[in-house]
Design a protein around this nucleic acid. Structure first.
Length: 429
RNA sequence: GGAUGGGUGGCCGAGUGGUCUAAGGCGGCGGUCUUGAAAACCGCUGUGGGCGAAAGUCCACCGGGGGUUCGAAUCCCUCCCCAUCCGCCA
C-alpha cells in the first residue's frame, strides 16, 4: 500500500505511475474522497470532544434532575457522533479499497512498457547454452526414462498439478536445499523453516488475497488459515506489527517451505510436466532493510541468485522487469530465466527465480517499522524477497541441460556431495 | 481437545464504572551539584491521526474485534496469545 499522504501530495506522479503499470485508478477521485473524509473526521472528533466534556460533568452533577438532563445531552451528542462516524467509516472503506489497488511506485531505471515484451535483458549467466549432438528430451520424457517423477500418481491421489518425486529426484530436491543454504549462510542469512499455512490477515498483509475468485491461494475451510504460496508470506508476517531498532537491520532470512498455488486462470497456459504445479518446495530469501539500503540489497539478492545458478552450471539470463509486468508491491524486480532445452521448439528461457524490492509498500500493510535511537517517531522498513531455489523449476533446468546422449543425466558437481553420485542412469528393468 | 489463571507504557507492576489526564518502581534523556564520575535531588518520557505558520491543541489506542452505558483498562460476548495441570499423540 502506498502512503496516503504521498498520494494526496503527488497525485500526478501516482496517476502516471499507474498508467505505466497498466492499472486504471482514478487518483483525482481518491483525493476528493480523502478531503471529504478529513472534514468528516474533524466533525467526529469535535462531537467526541463535546460528549466527553458532558460525561465528565455527570459524575459531579448536583442533583438527579441535572444528572438526567446532562445524560440526555450526552446521548444526543453520541448519536450525532455515531452518525458522523459511520459516514466517515464508509468513506474510509472506499478509500482503502482504492488505495489498495494502487501499485507501488517504480524505480526510475525500470524499463517502461506494457508487458513482458518490454522486459530488458541485463545479464547472462556464466554457462553457455548447451549444444547437443542428439535430439534433447524435455524433463517429462527424461523423468520417465529415469523413473524420477509420477505425474499420474499425483493426479490420482490428489489431482492434476500434483506429483510424486522419486529416486534421484528426491535426492536432488534435498541437495538443492542444502546447496542453497551453503551459499546463503555465509552471507548472514538465518536459515528458517516456516509454517506452510498462515493466517488470512498475514496473507493479505503480504499482498496476496486469501479468498475470492481471483485468488492464487488455497484456504482452509472453517478457519482463518490459508496454505502459503511462498515463504515470503510467513517470513514477512514474522515481523508484522513489530517495531525494530534501526541497528537490528538488515534482517536476512532464508526460509524453506512448501508453496501451494491454485493457478486459477492459468489453465489456458497449461504446460507439460512440473513447470506449473500446485505444490513445490522453495528456498526463499527475505530481507528487512533500512530505506537507504534496499536498492543495494536488491542487487545483492540478484547477485546471490546468479551465484547459485552459475554454481549449478545452468545457463540463464537476467531480466529487468518492465513496468506493465511488475506485480503490485514491487518497486523493481529482476527475474532469472534459466535455459530449458526441452521447452518450446528447440528450447526456451523459463523463469526460475525472481527478486523484488517492495520498498515500504508491503511493510505499510504489515505494519513493520523501525526506530532510530534518540529520534521521535517510527518509519516503515523496506522489504525484499528473492527466490534462492524453486525446486521444481530448478529440477527441470538441471535435467534438461545435463542430459547426455545415452539418456543419462549428469549431476551438477556442487550437488554431488548430497546426491552421492555423478550421474543418473536410465533404469534397465 | 478439557480445566484454571493470565495479557496494562521500553521493562516490572497497581488499577473491578466517573478527579485514569493510567499510581509506583526500573531503565532512558536533560539539568543541579562535582576537578571528573557516582550518589542525591529536580524535570522529561509511547504510537497513530486531525486542526494549526508555529507554540500548541484535540481525537484514538490498556492482546484483536464487537456490545452494554451519558461515560469502560474495569461489565458482557467472541477470537487470539501466554502459563500451569489433565487427556491424546509422532
Amino acid at each position: 500500500m502506498l502512503d496516503r499522504k504521498f498520494i494526496i501530495e503527488n497525485p500526478d506522479l501516482v496517476q502516471q505511475n499507474c498508467r505505466q503499470r497498466n492499472i486504471s485508478v482514478d487518483i483525482a477521485g481518491l483525493v476528493a474522497l480523502e478531503h471529504q473524509r478529513r472534514a468528516k473526521l474533524t466533525e467526529v472528533q469535535e462531537l467526541n470532544r463535546q460528549a466527553n466534556e458532558v460525561s465528565k460533568t455527570i459524575g459531579k452533577a448536583k442533583d438527579a434532575q441535572e444528572r438526567e438532563a446532562r445524560k440526555e445531552e450526552g446521548r444526543r451528542l453520541r448519536d450525532q457522533k455515531d452518525a458522523a462516524q459511520s459516514e466517515h467509516d464508509s468513506l474510509e472503506a472506499t478509500i482503502v479499497e482504492l488505495q489498495a489497488s494502487i501499485p507501488n511506485m517504480t524505480h526510475p531505471d525500470a524499463p517502461v512498457g506494457a508487458d513482458d515484451g518490454a522486459n530488458r535483458e541485463i545479464r547472462r549467466g556464466r554457462a553457455a547454452l548447451p549444444v547437443f549432438d542428439f535430439a534433447p528430451l524435455d524433463h517429462v520424457a527424461l523423468c520417465e526414462k529415469l523413473d524420477l517423477l509420477d505425474l499420474e500418481g499425483g493426479a490420482r491421489t490428489t489431482g492434476h498439478g500434483f506429483y510424486f518425486l522419486r529416486n534421484e529426484a528426491v535426492l536432488l530436491e534435498l541437495a538443492l536445499q542444502r546447496y542453497a543454504l551453503q551459499v546463503l549462510l555465509p552471507e548472514g542469512f538465518t536459515p528458517t523453516i516456516t509454517p506452510d499455512m498462515a493466517r488470512d490477515a498475514i496473507v493479505a498483509g503480504t499482498g496476496y488475497s486469501p479468498r475470492g475468485p481471483e485468488t492464487q491461494i488455497y484456504s482452509i475451510e472453517n478457519s482463518e488459515l490459508s496454505m502459503i504460496a511462498t515463504a515470503e508470506i510467513t517470513l514477512g508476517g514474522l515481523l508484522a506489527g513489530q517495531t525494530l531498532d534501526a541497528q537490528q537491520l538488515p534482517i536476512k532470512l532464508c526460509g524453506i517451505s512448501h508453496c501451494y498455488r491454485t493457478e486459477a486462470g492459468a489453465h489456458g497456459r497449461a504446460t507439460r510436466g512440473i513447470y506449473r504445479v500446485h505444490q513445490f518446495t522453495k528456498v526463499e530469501m527475505f530481507v528487512f532493510t533500512l530505506p537507504d539500503h534496499s536498492d543495494a540489497m536488491l542487487e545483492h539478492l540478484c547477485e546471490l541468485e546468479c551465484r547459485i545458478f552459475d554454481g549449478l552450471g545452468i545457463p540463464y539470463r537476467v531480466v529487468d522487469t518492465a513496468t506493465g509486468d511488475l506485480g503490485g508491491p514491487a518497486y523493481r524486480k529482476y527475474d532469472l530465466e534459466a535455459w530449458m532445452p526441452g521447452r518450446g521448439d528447440g528450447g526456451e528461457f523459463g523463469e526460475v527465480t525472481s527478486t523484488s524490492n517492495c520498498t515500504d509498500y508491503q511493510a505499510r500493510r504489515l505494519n513493520a517499522r523501525f526506530k532510530r535511537a534518540g529520534e521521535k517517531g517510527t518509519h516503515f522498513v523496506h522489504t525484499l524477497n528473492g527466490t534462492a531455489v524453486a525446486i521444481s523449476r530448478a529440477l527441470i533446468a538441471i535435467l534438461e541441460n545435463y542430459q547426455q546422449a545415452d539418456g543419462s543425466v549428469v549431476i551438477p558437481e556442487v550437488l554431488r556431495p548430497w546426491v552421492g553420485k555423478d550421474r543418473i542412469e536410465p533404469r534397465t528393468n
